[in-house]
Amino acid sequence: MTDETMLEEDGHSGGVVKKFLYVNRRAPYGSIYALESLEVVLIGAAFEQDVSLLFLDDGVFQLKKGQDTAMTDMKNFSPTYRALEMYDVEKLYADRESIEQRGLTEDDLIVPVEVLSRDEIKDLMAQQDVVLSF
């Protein structure tokens, strides 16, 4: 992420503020989507847009406490979710059904989230200008 940040100019949006929703649907490991989604969120934070993150389906596993990747030689990037607050990314949502189906509770999550029903998620998505799904 450092290379990227070095190359990146300061965010400039010409004063336009849009509602961006990042939908995270995949497990943290097994594919690169979760990690590269997080990279977009961090870079995007410089643009001072109205950002929300939604964790859906296996995406709720991204927030699971106690991730240990030592045996798989993968980078454990889960601490980064705790740093999102410093980037003013504060609106984190998770799908209730997805959490429950996977035998998780809010206490299992590494950061506080607002747990939403499917109906509430529908409304959240409808409010957005840009939806990026990873």
């Binding site: 010409g14 336009v16 977009v40 870079i43 847009q49 840009v130």
Partner: peptide
């Protein structure tokens, strides 16, 4: 080749951002 900021800018500047591939 450029940075991810170009994606955010693309979302800001366009009326619609269309994604291909899941």
């Amino acid at each position: 080749i450029s940075g991810l900021g170009q994606l955010i800018e693309a979302g800001i500047q366009a009326d619609r951002l269309i994604t291909f591939g899941d």
